[in-house]
Amino acid sequence: MSAMFELDFMRNALLAALFVGLAAPMVGIFLVQRRLSLIGDGLGHVALAGVAIGIATDRAPVLTALVTAALGAVVIELLRARGRTSGDLALAMLFYGGIAAGVVIINRSEGAQTGNLTSFLFGSIATTTRGELVTFAVLSAVIVGVTLVLRPRLFAVAGDEEYARASGLPVLALNILLAVLTAVTVVVAMRVIGLLLISALMIVPNAAAQQLSGSFRAANLWAVVLGVLSSVGGVVVSYQLDTASGGTIVLIAIALFVVAMVVGHVVRLVARRRHLRAERHAHEHGPGCGHEAVPHGDHVDYLHDGHRHAAHEGHYDEHSDHPPPAEGPDQDARHEQEVTR
């Protein structure tokens, strides 16, 4: 294990994985929220054309990929904002055009050799240079900083675009910003994961986080934890087992998703079985409902016939330590306390 850290290229690889694992889920959560999970794939295709241009013109492929993907992102958002049905077709043209142009340009400059192409499609972490690593570090810091500061606004626009517009938020600008952040993430991740698998690290940790959390804040944290775990873990495992890093990272992310799904399910099941349930009733407690409100920790209980009712999903939980005993058989049926502890 320690031998791994003595290798220069492995240190670079682990750092690059850390950057990607942090940044990708932070952008990805808004794509999941907007149900645009596949847009990262599309921008990966566009970035390939940029890589090809870089190789053909002897410029840094990271830089040309960044410019091309960002331009593609702006075009996509402008097409979407126009809201015509042809927007969907225009997206397809852009995505297929990107990958086709990439292949043609690279073949023109390198003949039948497509080794270079494969390294971008599937990632080739070992070839990451020191200079590229610095670029990735700066870009990741920008992504993390921008998403942290603008998180409430990005959340509002992705959740309800119409309301955001009515309340005066700059919806188009925020949408373009998110698309450009996605493009930058694609470029940061292309060396580590590869352009074909890039979207996975933006989407899968978020899908897993949704299983484990009940708030946007918690989901954000979980996604970053799972993202870093997948990307860094994937690089370590791929070194030990001598497997492709990109594919390994994505398989680990999916394995974590399955674990999260099972854990989330079990937790919900246990929670449902062990809580004390008060009666289901048509009445909904609220201010001025006639029942006394009692502050209880972070919420409010309502006193109802000696029971302390706390809202939980479609019913009320019993929150008093010693609920009054049911009096008669019909009372019993009415209160139907499920005390299964």
Partner: peptide
């Protein structure tokens, strides 16, 4: 209310 993610009433 919020698209494809979880969020609390307060959020």
């Amino acid at each position: 209310l919020v698209g494809g993610v979880r969020a609390t009433v307060a959020e």
